[in-house]
Design a binder for these strands. Structure first.
Lengths: 243, 243
DNA sequence: ACAAAAGTGTTAGAAATACACCCATGT
DNA sequence: ACATGGGTGTATTTCTAACACTTTTGT
């Protein structure tokens, strides 16, 4: 950034955002995909995204695109957990021109409707199980794969799992998030102790309880606490890591 | 990325890379800075970086800029640990025009000469202790601070510390890396056990030993091993994290 | 002999793990 | 009654933390 330059001397770069929006539904990790309406990759599934406008930051653009393409309420979009993943800049990743894309990961609780109607391109948006997502446009399969593994490791050492849960949730639901994302079973008593022993991870909602699945004992409700990091971390059981 | 567009309909974005290159020298974490020769921020210190060329990826650009601005040998630059940090895209971060910058973090062993001569802008490059780096150009203070904390946490759960060491190093040198970056003292026997107990973190160089600082018993030499993640992690002592 | 740095051993406490068991609710 | 899921207790093993001690070099 210290060399003399004339903006016009450089071929223009288009700068976009792409979003990997995850949710946990029905025991499987789902990602929000949009069916492309035009070439290239017309008819293929792609991550939602779009151009960064001249006066907005990448994060602002990401939230705007997400609201436009899903019809989610602005309040909800403003509140959800959004985090930069990384930037994809390989020449040729878009056949039309040079496109540099800042990718984001977002985590949302399970919505009543997959992609609400509303304006914009919402009608082409769908929740798709990540394991069933194949043949994505551009390099979106790579982005999705990077995002997925990042989410997996973030659950280990941050309190992010609550972002997948509704405002008030049971410890069973929280554990289901971990088990779904990691695809492992966890010991319930130990999970519970670990979570409760981490100050600020969750806060009990006094007195409240909820029937879960109609069956069984009603479960106590919790809210996300103020903590953001999990210390010590909650390591997934021997997942490939040789001990 | 699914809306119809004409490349020319969008104000051009300049896309650059910025590098936070760290090394450990004389018990302090240092960062490579360049003194700017022109406005804006003429005379101020800045992170090395520059424009991404039309046919290169951000990572390729980062390595090229690093070689150009420091005069480091291409082989060394090709081998060093380089990793995307994040992308900075706030409008107004460069007063001249819209500049989106992909920031990288690089770790290098302590060089004999700070910034070797060679061609390019190397004469304006200097190693500066990170704690003494103030008044950086643009938003580089933010980038540097983000990079610094990322390096700190990466030492906890990856084998990255060896990237600060020469090809063969003693466990004392490795421990000094941790102590310098974290700014804490570590118990030597426990550190040593932890490192040796992690398979693939370091490999003993058979028979080799080196006098360290002229005094004391010669230390055994080690090479970086094949492992990349540290499992279980090597947590820094209660660094702000309430237990 | 002494200082300095590497390297080994030991022990008390904390944490993770693997269970067995009890509680409240719907069918 | 019993299946289902929430919640508690406890013993075992493993890891961490702290520190005492030995070894090998230079001065």
């Amino acid at each position: 950034m210290n060399t003399a330059y004339d903006p016009r001397a450089f071929e223009p770069f288009a700068v976009t955002v792409d979003l990997a929006v995850f949710t946990v539904r029905a025991g499987a990790l789902h990602v929000l995909l949009i069916r492309r309406g035009q070439e290239p990759y017309a008819g293929a599934w792609a991550l939602p995204g779009g151009f960064i406008l001249p006066r907005e930051s990448a994060e602002t653009a990401a939230r705007r695109e997400l609201a436009e393409e899903t019809g989610l309420s602005p309040a909800l979009v403003a509140a959800l957990h959004l985090e930069q993943l990384r930037t994809y800049s390989e020449p040729g990743r878009d056949p039309r021109m040079r496109v540099v894309s800042v990718a984001f990961t977002a985590l949302v609780p399970d919505m009543p409707e997959p992609a609400a109607e509303g304006g914009g391109d919402a009608d082409r948006a769908r929740w798709v199980p990540v394991d069933g997502a194949a043949g994505l446009a551009f390099d979106h399969a790579v982005i999705l794969s990077d995002a997925r593994s990042r989410v997996g490791s973030k659950l280990e050492y941050t309190c992010l799992a609550t972002a997948f849960c509704p405002p008030e949730f049971t410890l069973g639901e929280l554990q289901a998030v971990y088990e779904t994302v990691w695809d492992t079973a966890l010991d319930r008593p130990n999970f519970r102790r670990k979570v409760l022993a981490t100050p600020g991870f969750v806060e009990a909602v006094p007195g409240a309880a909820r029937l879960t699945g109609g069956r069984g004992k009603p479960a106590a409700l919790y809210r996300p606490g103020p903590a953001t990091v999990l210390h010590p971390p909650l390591l997934r059981p021997t997942e490939g890591h040789p001990r």
